[in-house]
Amino acid sequence: MPGVADTLDLTADPVTLTVALVDVPSVSGDEQRIADLVERSLREQTALEVVRSGNTVLARTNLGRERRVVLAGHLDTVPVNDNLPSRLEDGVLHGLGSVDMKGGDAVMLALAGTLTDPRHDLTFVFYDCEEVEASRNGLGRVERELPEWMSGDLAIVCEPSNGVIEAGCQGTIRVQVRATGKRAHTARGWMGVNAIHLLGDAIARLRDHESRVVEIDGCTYREGVQAVGITGGVSGNVVPDECVLTVNHRFAPDRTPAQAEAYLRELFDGYEVTVTDFAAGALPGLASPAARELVEAAGGAPVAKLGWTDVARFAALGTPAVNFGPGDPLLAHTQQENVRVNEIGHCYEVLSRFLSAMP
């Protein structure tokens, strides 16, 4: 895109950095240009160790500090929807990726460029392909090939969180609940068994189901079990012999995927249940010393993350993780993506205070 700089000024304010990043198109799978820009800027302007893995850029300090904090943000966006280039109006920055999540990336870059003597050793992970299937996610590649780069005492995923610390995340599991009947001509329906009718009880169980509300480390996680799809039917004059109900369960991080599966099998006892997808949640991890420092620097009460994010990848490796970044996540993936510039500044100030303050 015309006017895009060849390098980023990492000492600029994070709002200026956000504008520069938004104006570089980086739809999933097409991140080379923005990854080149980030890599070149880090190599030329910092003393960080910098490594490239595909279109993921990794950088870190090696100062021998007692603790290490990992900051992570993805560089890709969903497809362009007539929302480039960026525009700044009345303290609000509009444009693709402004919320999800180039505001967070800009905060990370500003920290990399200005924190020359941080309290903790720092690792920065700018990764690719977060907005597409999990098998392409750059964090997965780093975990497989460079796992030491994901290790730390605390990980901060700078996804939009309205500038509030969101601790841990829910797990998710999808299942198919299947009913099997017997085909017959609808003119002689009594000779068949209607599989769609058989699923009526399963749907009633969902309707009457009361999901758990769980408090962990002062954070309230609200579970949910929802029907998200149903298929069945052969033709307009045939009693169907199969019907499949797809159900998504968002579960609190005190449960493992296996426990969530057992919960659903009990809920749908008498039906055939097949797991089609799952991902473990992440416990808040707020008891770790580094997490306590971050909460103190933020000056507000953490809340539970109601959804799944890449914090779960860090938690699975034993690194406590939180979400903390500028912008309203409800605006992510919309044509109207925008972020208030004061929220970008707030997140930078909190993280700068947390990472540079002395005991």
Results as ranks from 00 to 15, higher is better:
155 A>S: 13
325 G>F: 10
277 D>Y: 15
255 R>A: 13
219 C>L: 04
319 T>H: 10
216 I>A: 04
178 R>W: 00
288 S>Q: 12
118 P>C: 05
218 G>H: 11
310 D>I: 13
344 I>D: 01
229 G>Y: 13
205 R>S: 03
33 R>L: 05
336 Q>W: 00
116 T>A: 11
13 D>K: 04
358 M>T: 14
270 G>H: 08
25 P>I: 03
7 T>R: 12
2 P>C: 05
3 G>V: 04
206 L>Y: 00
304 A>L: 04
304 A>T: 03
107 V>T: 02
319 T>Y: 06
169 C>R: 08
314 F>E: 02
355 L>M: 06
192 G>R: 10
48 L>K: 02
43 R>N: 07
291 A>Y: 09
313 R>G: 12
238 V>A: 12
10 L>H: 01
45 Q>M: 02
144 R>I: 08
167 A>H: 03
156 I>C: 04
77 T>R: 04
336 Q>Y: 04
78 V>D: 09
89 E>R: 14
259 Q>H: 03
84 L>F: 15
26 S>V: 05
57 V>R: 02
18 T>R: 00
187 A>C: 08
225 V>I: 15
49 E>I: 13
297 A>E: 10
343 E>Q: 12
127 Y>Q: 07
150 M>E: 14
207 R>W: 06
135 S>K: 04
85 P>Y: 11
30 D>A: 15
202 A>H: 01
46 T>Q: 01
272 E>F: 08
326 P>D: 06
274 T>L: 13
114 T>M: 09
188 R>A: 12
127 Y>T: 07
147 P>M: 13
352 S>I: 01
246 T>V: 11
14 P>A: 15
168 G>Q: 12
278 F>H: 14
178 R>G: 02
282 A>D: 06
347 C>N: 06
258 A>P: 00
165 I>N: 03
163 G>D: 07
219 C>N: 05
248 N>S: 15
102 K>L: 14
167 A>C: 10
346 H>F: 14
197 H>Y: 11
136 R>P: 00
53 S>R: 13
56 T>M: 09
162 N>L: 15
93 L>H: 07
317 L>N: 09
354 F>N: 10
41 S>V: 12
66 E>H: 07
112 A>L: 06
8 L>W: 00
50 V>M: 02
128 D>E: 15
235 S>D: 15
214 V>C: 10
358 M>F: 00
